[in-house]
Write a protein that binds this DNA or RNA. Structure first.
Length: 611
RNA sequence: GGACCGGUAGCUCAGUUGGAUAGAGCAUCAGCCUUCUAAGCUGAGGGUCAUUGGUUCGAAUCCAAUCCGGUUCACCA
């Protein structure tokens, strides 16, 4: 058996290889039966048994009318004889065939990929995919809930791109409507011309303050009207500040220059603020959409739908679609006065996106409270025969809640995004100083380090949970920097870099560094565990992409770091038993570091070389 | 009420194309730094996988019913 022979084996699918080998063996012994690759069930062998991978024999024994032991002996024997470069021994334990995979398989995998910066890249599916995320309103700053959306969208964009797709990262700005007018009215009434410059308040926060102010005043006005004996519904309508806001919306739609000007000015403040936050978050967009630009297109598409007879008009002139045959209701698409509703704009944007980029798929990162809305949107587009309908995918994620319940901006219970970022950096600093690891860095390096650690922790915290699950965040307990965190992974990486520095190697040594190395030493359990994990990385990337679930990658990266830490504790690298072992281990940790960096980069998380 | 999502250790979460004695982290307890970074490692305790029934050689995973929690069903966005 030579390592050379293994060069012909594709290394990205060990379980697939095992399945194929087992299938061939089955076909060899039982010609008359038809087997499928999917009927071969391969799992990692449980720790308490000898072996690496396990084939479950039960599915076959019924069909073949034989005893598990008998089948296991035949299969095991055949596999070892005919795939000697892959399997070295087998054992049958009550219906399970446990196979030991050769050390050479793993060391060859390592030799061929330790320097491969693209390890983990899977076959190109080459689709044109848009990922829309963030999508803020321009009446208030970003809060903690938005962060989950933003990190998910950004990570997803990277991951889809990694899988060979052409990705457009898009942001749809909700910049028009009554809610925007609210902060404008309050600013006009109470700000005395205050600007971000004059107050030294970040633009999005300044505007957000007046949105809060609006609601305070509105509540007070309602209360006053109630005292006068008005009923609640009427009071909500009659409150003067609300009337002003509605008046302003009408003026805006009519193109009133003064209102339009104010709208542009205040939105510009918000965009400046958002830009600062996005930069801190390390995210970006290829394309911006503004609802003020798309809502008219939505209207025109609705008109087309009327002509086609897909939609219908009621007596009051409002336009509807009938979705009762889909088990849903009738939905309003245009008001009686001809103005658009929420979904009208979304119809316009969906079509515009499709036309702009000829998309195969359009991913919407939107909270799960909009599941119904997205379902309706897709149905409407389908009924109207719009080609964009087929590619719409709603990546629905659960809300981030406080222990006391949902965050509500009107009730002042939101955790502000900028505050959260600052808090994370502060914690990173505190923790670093506490453990006495702040020495040997310049002030600038320290700042960089605190950002890397703080932002990494924040991103990982929000990405490590399955998106569809809601999550509870307790600001009082804040975010830990121990255990299942980005810090843990960063630390493992820094340890590896430290060893490499000591060995005078760079983080990614020259390709000929380990040339001429023969690998005859037997692998220890800790070494093999790491190599087995590395072997699985391409599959992990693929799963993360197909399931659109970055938490898969979070879990994997944490496990890999954990395996490294265990290995690190048990074995010395610099003082390995012999030179061959040392070189092997160096090669291993280079690949571990490379893989961790690769995965974390997709999530938008940096790994420091020193911490 | 209808639709959708969730319920796994004290807490936060993995694990579901059905596989062996259900796993991590935090918290608790006990160990490990004259040797490559202890932001780490090793071990212990902690579970009727919401409940009940069914399918199966085998169920946290599939099916049915029930209970609990959330979201949604606006001429708001």
């Amino acid at each position: 058996m030579s390592i050379f022979a293994l060069n012909l084996i594709p290394f990205n699918m060990l379980t697939q290889l095992i399945k194929e080998s087992a299938l061939a063996a089955l076909q060899h012994f039982y010609h008359d039966e038809t087997f499928t690759i999917d009927s071969v069930n391969v799992n990692e062998t449980k720790a308490e048994f000898k072996g690496d991978y396990t084939i479950v024999l039960f599915p076959f024994i019924k069909m073949l009318r034989c005893k598990p032991d008998e089948l296991g002996q035949r299969l095991g024997g055949y596999l070892i004889q005919n795939n000697s470069q892959l399997f070295t021994e087998f054992q049958i334990v009550s219906g399970f065939l446990n196979l030991r995979v050769s050390d050479q398989f793993f060391t060859s995998l390592l030799q061929q990929n330790w320097h491969n910066a693209d390890y983990g890249t899977t076959k190109s599916t080459a689709k044109k995919i848009m990922v829309e995320y963030s999508s803020p309103n321009t009446n208030k700053p970003l809060h903690f809930g938005h962060l989950r959306n933003i990190f998910l969208g950004y990570a997803l964009g990277n991951i889809l791109k990694q899988n060979g797709n052409d990705v457009v990262k898009a942001n749809l700005i909700n910049d028009r409507g009554i809610h925007i007018c609210k902060s404008m009215v309050a600013w006009q009434r109470y700000a005395n011309g205050a600007t971000p410059q004059s107050t030294d308040i970040k633009g999005d926060h300044l505007v957000g303050d007046y949105y809060v102010k609006f609601n305070d005043v509105y509540k007070a006005e309602i209360a006053a009207l109630l005292v006068q004996g008005m009923d609640e519904k009427q009071a909500e309508k009659e409150a003067s500040i609300m009337q002003e806001a509605q008046q302003m919306l009408r003026q805006w739609e009519a193109g009133d220059p003064a209102v339009y000007n104010l709208w542009q000015t205040m939105n510009a403040w918000v965009y400046e603020g958002f830009a600062v936050t996005y930069k801190k978050l390390g995210v970006d967009f290829d394309k911006m959409y503004y609802e003020s630009n798309t809502y008219l297109l939505g209207k025109s598409i609705v008109e087309k739908g009327l002509e086609k007879g897909v939609l219908f008009r009621k007596e009051d002139n409002s336009v509807w679609i009938d979705l009762t045959d889909e088990g849903l209701d009738q939905k309003l698409l245009l008001r009686g006065d001809g103005t658009s509703v929420y979904i009208t704009q979304d119809i316009g944007t969906a079509v515009l996106k499709y036309n702009d980029f000829n998309l195969d798929q359009s991913v919407y990162v939107i909270a799960d409270e909009q599941n119904y809305h997205m379902q309706v949107l897709q149905l409407i587009l389908k009924k109207m025969g719009e080609p964009c309908a087929a590619g719409i995918y709603h990546l629905s994620y659960g809300m981030v809640e406080l222990p006391t319940g949902r965050m509500k901006s009107r009730e002042g219970t939101v955790v502000d995004a900028d505050d959260m970022i600052a808090e994370m950096l502060r914690m990173a600093q505190e923790q670093t100083e506490q453990t006495g690891k702040a020495d040997g860095f310049s002030a600038e390096e320290l700042n960089q380090l605190y950002t890397t650690i703080g932002m990494g922790a924040l991103k990982f915290y929000l990405l490590r949970v399955d998106p569809k699950k809601k999550m509870i965040f307790d600001p009082k307990e804040s975010i830990d920097l121990h255990g299942f965190t980005a810090t843990f992974i960063q630390y493992a990486h820094a340890r590896i870099c430290s060893i490499l520095r000591k060995e005078q190697l760079s983080v990614m040594p020259a390709i000929n560094t380990f040339e001429g190395l023969t690998l005859n030493e037997k692998l220890t359990k800790a070494e093999k565990d790491i190599l087995m994990a590395l072997e699985q990385y391409p599959n992990i990337i693929e799963t993360t992409a197909t399931e659109m679930n970055p938490s898969v990658l979070c879990n994997y990266s944490f496990q890999l770091a954990q395996l490294f830490n265990t290995f690190y504790d048990q074995h010395s690298i610099s003082k390995a038993e012999n030179e061959e072992k040392k070189q092997l281990r160096l090669m291993m940790i280079v690949m571990v570091a490379q893989t961790l960096r690769h995965g974390m980069k997709l999530l938008g998380i940096d790994l420091p070389e020193k911490m």
